[in-house]
Design a protein around this nucleic acid. Structure first.
Lengths: 247, 247
DNA sequence: AACCAACATTGATATGGATCAAAAGGCGGA
DNA sequence: TCCGCCTTTTGATCCATATCAATGTTGGTT
């Protein structure tokens, strides 16, 4: 359960998240400054990156893999409040301690920046500050969409919504692969899905079985999901289905 | 149902939200620039400020009153995704159309900035950009706390959570009035509360009655709420009750 | 002063998802 | 290859909240 430092990581220009992460707008000289304060950390699936309340001396970008932000009540009820995919940003500049527990839900590599120098760079580098604002506004929109899911959708709609979200981002990441059939690996266990959606894992399992029986999805093994008809899935999610899911 | 422009509004230095709004960090010269692009609008309780999808030519700060951000599904299910109190910011720089419906839930006054010039000011005025980032991060934290409420709390805990939130901000706004008894007016109808909490209005009513019967709250009329013991209320909300609610 | 419409409460019943329980994969390690 | 653990599925039952339906309350209007 120890962290491993990722080997032979080269400079930022080769970085897979170069154009989507918090550094997306940076010029070469700004990247050079970032490289001075950055380091990589890797985690294996299930490992906790940090506990809510821990002192936090860095902020970070997810380079690869998936991480989750969770909140837990005293009696153990837990709710996922963020799903962090490659290029997403972790941590709040100006905050000393973590507000949420961060867990690797798959193999995870993060690009960490020492917090203090990063905070200084925000003040001196509009390219970073601006991009961070943009990303935070996007996260706020995502959180609000999620609130509708949590507050008003049925279990079946919740599952369909989650699948649609993952399918959509997968379609974006692997747009090149023009295979007709939309398919992806679920990066979450049933339990993680239940924490995401405010359900029990039994209900998640049942609803996935139901969607499979009804032909909305096709399963290959437990984790691989095919979506024969994305519009059907979006309809099941209860979203305004006015097309354009590859926006 | 027509908008009324607030009368005789003076310059920013007298503004009640001067030190908490998006302009909080601005210097006198920056305020002068803002004054050139600002105008006030008033709404009465129940009025819609804008519909999701509307073209939006301004962003704004809530000066007084309460507004709500809501999302609605095709079949009419609606979820509140934001509760806007004085000094809160409405609108997303760079976005042409409103993502959410904004409704005045009480008498409401907003300080509106024409969008295009405001966007330019963000790029040229770090004091605004920085404050906007800070406010957006705060909203994201609030949204995440709310996700735990929506996903994992019981109806009783949800009501207690909402009352605690309102009580807390009321304690902050009127800290001077050192009356022992914590009391406030609910700025929301039962239906608005149900939209906030992902419940039906009947359940809201029942749970409020139950909290009253159990002595957690005391009602004077329908809208005025007394909280004899704030810690008791926070306990009912299921929050980690490690004190310090006047932080 | 009386009425009306909007808001709120309360009651009876239905039901979606939770809970409790068991069995069935699937995968890494000996 | 087999074992044992972890994840997932499926089944039976229960209960919190939704739904359907009246009734009560309040504040504004004529």
């Amino acid at each position: 359960m120890q962290d491993m430092v990722a080997p032979n990581m080269k400079d930022c220009s080769d970085c897979p998240i170069r154009h989507r992460a918090v550094c997306a707008r940076c010029e070469a000289d700004e990247l050079a400054l970032l490289e001075d304060i950055k380091y990589y950390r890797s985690f294996s699936a299930g490992q906790t990156v940090m506990w809510a309340g821990d002192r936090m001396d860095f902020v970070a970008s997810v380079v690869s893999g998936v991480a989750s932000l969770t909140q837990t009540m005293e009696d153990g009820r837990t709710q996922m409040v963020g799903l962090l995919l490659p290029s997403d940003f972790v941590g709040r500049p100006g905050r000393e301690t973590a507000a949420y527990t961060v867990t690797a839900t798959s193999e995870l590599v993060m690009c960490c920046f020492r917090r203090k120098p990063f905070e200084q760079m925000i003040d001196t580098t509009p390219h970073i500050a601006h991009r961070l604002l943009e990303m935070t506004l996007d996260e706020l929109d995502a959180a609000r969409e999620w609130m509708l899911v949590l507050g008003r959708k049925t279990a079946r709609e919740k599952i369909a919504s989650l699948l649609a979200i993952i399918a959509r981002r997968d379609a974006i990441l692997s747009k090149h692969s023009e295979s007709k059939i939309l398919a992806f690996d679920l990066p979450l266990t049933r339990e993680a899905m239940s924490d995401y959606l405010g359900l029990t894992l039994e209900t998640v399992s049942r609803q996935i079985s139901a969607l499979k029986k009804d032909g909305v999805i096709v399963l290959e093994g437990k984790r691989r999901v095919q979506v024969p008809d994305m519009y059907r899935l979006m309809d099941e999610a209860g979203d305004d289905s006015d097309g354009g899911f590859l926006s």
